[in-house]
């Protein structure tokens, strides 16, 4: 019987050459090559930001970024994961903060050092407008900063490359918290729901779910999925 040879590609992981099957994500390629990812792997679904990767393509000076679990490995990729970026987190008490134009600068004064070089935006594997939200913070536009930073997965690449040594995602987290607590319109539905929970409206249902067996839960879940697909169609 003929051997079905898979096409392989060459990738360089931390400088060492490996042949890996084509069609793997960077993360799978790293594991295929024999590495065990202790840090640098998390949800494997593009949400947790653990697998931040920097790489260069053959014969290119450009430094590229990706989330290893979401990006296909390519022939000639010269890569490494950045499993951790040291980042200071300011201590603040959200209850005591008074929203003011320089509120972010009070906890993260380094944001004032931004020189608008746009390196952070170029380093974002989620294609967020990072420099724009930092600039919004500088300007005191908390709402815009919260909006633009919403999809951030805190992978750390922006902070690793910033010449002004800003930790973008921690500052953005403060912006989102201040926005949610002080600036966003309170949601009447949220308040209603919290009241219902406190009054015990959902206690029965939760008790039932908790005491349900695994088989019963699986059955109900599949039923619900089927119904949802029917509704969509």
């Amino acid at each position: 019987m003929e051997e079905n040879k898979e096409k392989t590609i060459k990738v360089y992981i931390m400088g060492k050459e490996h042949q890996v099957p084509e069609g793997l994500t960077i993360m799978k390629a790293i594991e295929y090559a024999g590495y065990k990812l202790v840090r640098g792997a998390g949800c494997r679904a593009g949400f947790c930001g653990a697998c931040a990767t920097v790489y260069r393509k053959a014969n290119e000076y450009k430094l590229r970024v990706a989330l290893a679990c979401q990006t296909l490995a390519e022939d000639g990729m010269y890569l490494t994961e950045i499993p951790f970026v040291p980042a200071n987190k300011a201590k603040y008490e959200l209850e005591k903060i008074k929203p003011s134009p320089n509120i972010i600068l009070q906890s993260y004064p380094e944001v004032a050092r931004c020189v608008a070089c746009n390196t952070c935006t170029k380093s974002c594997p989620q294609d967020l407008k990072v420099m724009d939200y930092i600039q919004a913070m500088k300007r005191g536009d908390i709402a815009r900063a919260a909006e633009l930073s919403f999809d951030c997965v805190q992978c750390g690449l922006c902070a690793a490359r910033c010449p002004a040594e800003i930790v973008h995602y921690h500052a953005a987290q403060l912006a989102r918290r201040v926005y949610g607590k002080y600036l966003a319109k309170p949601s009447p539905n949220l308040e209603k729901r919290i009241k219902e929970i406190e009054e015990g409206k959902y206690d029965e249902e939760i008790k039932r779910l908790k005491s349900m067996g695994l088989e019963e839960m699986k059955k109900r879940y599949m039923e619900q999925q089927k119904n949802a697909e029917k509704e969509e169609a």
Binding site: V115, C117, N118, Q135, K138, R139
Partner: peptide, 25 residues
């Protein structure tokens, strides 16, 4: 329609380009 902080003070060394980027933008 889009703008960023100009940097407020002009960088005075002859070799600095990075700190002018904000204003060029």
């Amino acid at each position: 329609p889009e703008w960023n902080c100009c940097g407020t003070v002009y960088s005075l060394t002859t070799d600095d380009i990075m700190r002018h980027i904000a204003s060029v933008r």
